[in-house]
Amino acid sequence: MPFQQQIFALFISVLVFVVVVDLVRRRRLREEYSVLWLATSVIMFVLVIRYEWLVRLTNWIGAGLPTTTLFLFSIIFLLMLCVQFCIKLSKLSDQIKNLAQENALMRSEINHTTNKGVNLSTDQG
């Protein structure tokens, strides 16, 4: 791997790591989502330092070039992220549904009680 490429890759992986940790620190990103990102940056860092591991991995999965391996894994990473989001989305829509139902039921309850109150007061008046 050319020196320039190596420096660039290291820079990117360190940047990703720092940004993610900072986002978690400022509570902009929840810890549960940071795991995948941090893991990716660490793996990238290790593979740049130990380039022979990347080559061995490439041979092991039968890819032609180390770059193919990197692309392949970045796509897998993105897919995993998408699945994680979908799971979260399903859960959130379910929670929103329950909240909205609860809200509708409570509102009808409140309307009912206030209407009763109004009726009572008009009866008395």
């Binding site: 909205a100 509708a104 509102r107 009808s108 009912h112």
Partner: peptide, 10 residues
Amino acid sequence: AKVISHSFNM
């Protein structure tokens, strides 16, 4: 009828 209204369409 007793009406229960959702805030949005679900």
